[in-house]
Structures are given as C-alpha cells and as structure tokens.
Lab assay of single mutants.
Amino acid sequence: MSRVPSPPPPAEMSSGPVAESWCYTQIKVVKFSYMWTINNFSFCREEMGEVIKSSTFSSGANDKLKWCLRVNPKGLDEESKDYLSLYLLLVSCPKSEVRAKFKFSILNAKGEETKAMESQRAYRFVQGKDWGFKKFIRRDFLLDEANGLLPDDKLTLFCEVSVVQDSVNISGQNTMNMVKVPECRLADELGGLWENSRFTDCCLCVAGQEFQAHKAILAARSPVFSAMFEHEMEESKKNRVEINDVEPEVFKEMMCFIYTGKAPNLDKMADDLLAAADKYALERLKVMCEDALCSNLSVENAAEILILADLHSADQLKTQAVDFINYHASDVLETSGWKSMVVSHPHLVAEAYRSLASAQCPFLGPPRKRLKQS
C-alpha cells in the first residue's frame, strides 16, 4: 500500500486566492494483479454453464480479502454459449462490502496482453458476489490457432484489481511565511564533478583513453575500487588504474551511474553493462540491467540471455529466462542460440529441462510459493 502523499503547497495549487485553511483528501486504492494459466484448455468440458475456478489470491499475505477468477468455457447461458465468460469473485471478506475495479486480458504466445476488457467503474462486491463479462471473447476466435491465444493449448488470463480503501483527510492552515525547501541536487552536482573533471585525484585508463576521477567517490560506490585504493596496490601508489576489459562507451555509462545513480543509455548496452556491474560489484546497476534484459526477452535471444545471466550470477534474470524458455519451449528449441547452448553450456540445458519437467508435473513435489530491489 502506498504512503499517503503530503498535500501540495497551496501557493502551487492555483494562481488564484489562497485560503486560510485547507483539506486534502486521499482515497486510498490498493492495486494488484494475478495470472492464471489453464493447461490443455481444449479438453475443458463443453457443457453450457460449466465452471472452472482459479485458486484464491489477494494483494498480499496480510490481506484478508480473498478473490478468485471464474471461467465458463462455453458461456454462462444460452445467450453467451458462443463466448467464454469471465468473472472476478470475492471469496471471503471481513467487511460487509468492498468496491473494486478490474481489468481482464489474455496473454498471447509472446506474453503480450490482448483482448483487454475492464470495468468502467468500481463495482460493489459482497462475499460470494462476482462481476465480469458474460461475453468476454468469442470461442471461435479464441480457438483459432492463427490468433495465437492458446500457445501449446494453454489459456493464460491476466487480471488487474484495484480495491478502494478508506479515504484519509489531511488538513492544515496557511501561513504568510511559507518556506520552500529546494530539491536535493546531489546527483546532478556529483555528475558535474565527473563531467568537468574537477578536483580529480586519479586516472582511469580504458582502451587508450584516459578519464579523470575521484578516488573517494569510486571507493564509496564500488567495493572493488575501494579494495584497489585501500591496500598497497599499484593503483593506490600511482593513482592510476588500467581497465582492459570494458569498452570506453560502456565504461562511461558505468561511471555515470557511479556518480549519479542513473544510467540513461542502459537499454542500448544492458548486456555489456551487466558484465561491468558484476565485475565492479555495483549491485543496483546489475539489477537494473537484469530488468532491462528481462523486458527484451524473446524467442530468438532467450538462450543467449540465459548464458549471460549464468555467467554473471544474475539470479533474477536467470529465473526469468528459464521461465520464458519453459513457456515458449517449442519455439526456443528451434533457435540457433539454443542449439549452440546445447554444445557450449549443457548444464544450462539440463537446468531448463528440470524446470520444465517440474512445471508440467506438479505432483512430483509440493507447490512452490512464489514470493528486491534495493
């Protein structure tokens, strides 16, 4: 649940008159999402009104509101027999009622949201009550392989729920002597030191190019640089560091992050930047690179990204790559990247197969709970 924001200063709310007192009302909304995959969808019983329910879910471990999704594969009634019906059901509720908006969509073979439908307002739910769409999607369109909505005969539904909580009022009075504290510009100011090479005390040599930097900042941000300058190493004695395995453009992006906490060109060089972040123990930059690479996972590059993640101990990226390969196994196994990995990294192939087997055979063990970014 997000923290209630402070109200904007009255002088910034309007260029008009300023009242002596004010009130700011925040209506709290808890948002969460749920993904439900139905394997072997074409084998569902086709009687009209037949119901399939998901397991229950909530916004978190401490949330007492429990929900589930309900599907009628062949419609709810005679009117909707040519459609799939989809509903959000409130299973248990400690209150007399709650209000919530919802959005349903289908994830296609690429994991993209399609055929989205959402409620136009927050509906009133009581325990045992459901709301949804009797005519969510035509069955003939859903079952047509050309539309790519049932890869490997799996129907994957994605649901986003927004639950309306209580409202909170914050009130106060205006004073004539309003003090406005300026925003912190530390990142910009440190970035200026790097860009202008002011007050530098060490030189970093990268592929024949020299960059002036500040030992204190490098040591504070990177345990690797800290070790170089702290001990009686040649880098500490000469205040000069030779860097041979990072390209200059990648190095500059890494230094921008060290000084400012930002990497504006990360998406263009996420793979190389991940390697640099791993070498210099820049954990936050490493996770930022993992996130960017996750966003660009595809059938063509899944094997290469899995190898990269394994090489640099990028655990979150590795998990996402394995899950992606499992979901698109029939396509990924035909790529040149996968065939190369079979020869060069057989242990990763074995890991992917083990994960695929456990996903398809849940009876082999208890269900695993899916539970950071600093």
Rank of each mutant, 00 (worst) to 15 (best):
S2T: 10
V4L: 01
P8A: 11
E12R: 06
S14K: 11
G16D: 07
P17T: 07
C23I: 05
C23S: 13
Q26H: 09
I27T: 09
I27C: 06
K28R: 13
V29L: 12
Y34T: 01
Y34M: 06
M35V: 02
I38T: 02
F43E: 13
C44F: 03
G49R: 01
F57C: 02
F57K: 00
D63F: 01
K64R: 03
C68R: 07
R70Q: 10
D77Q: 14
Y83N: 09
L86D: 00
Y87K: 01
L88P: 01
L90D: 03
L90R: 05
S96T: 11
A100E: 00
F102E: 00
I106F: 08
L107I: 05
N108E: 12
N108I: 01
T114S: 04
M117G: 08
F125D: 01
F125K: 01
G128Y: 09
D130T: 15
W131A: 01
K134L: 07
K135T: 11
R138E: 11
F141W: 13
L157W: 14
E160Y: 14
V164P: 02
Q165P: 13
Q165Y: 07
S167L: 06
S167G: 07
S167I: 03
N169T: 02
I170H: 03
M176G: 01
E183C: 07
A187G: 02
A187H: 04
L190H: 05
G192N: 07
F199Y: 14
C202A: 10
C205Q: 15
V206E: 03
A213G: 13
H214G: 01
A220T: 06
S222T: 15
S222D: 02
S222P: 00
P223L: 11
A227F: 14
M228I: 12
E232P: 12
E234D: 14
E234I: 15
K238A: 09
V246A: 01
M255R: 04
M255C: 07
F257K: 01
T260H: 04
G261P: 00
L266S: 12
A270V: 05
A270I: 05
A277V: 08
A281V: 12
V287G: 04
A292V: 12
N296Q: 13
V299A: 04
E300V: 05
A302W: 15
Q316K: 11
K318F: 11
I325V: 06
N326K: 01
V332R: 00
W338Y: 05
V342G: 14
S344G: 12
H345M: 06
V349T: 02
A350D: 10
E351H: 06
Y353K: 00
L356T: 11
S358K: 11
C361Y: 07
P362C: 15
P366K: 10
P367V: 14
R370A: 08
S374P: 05
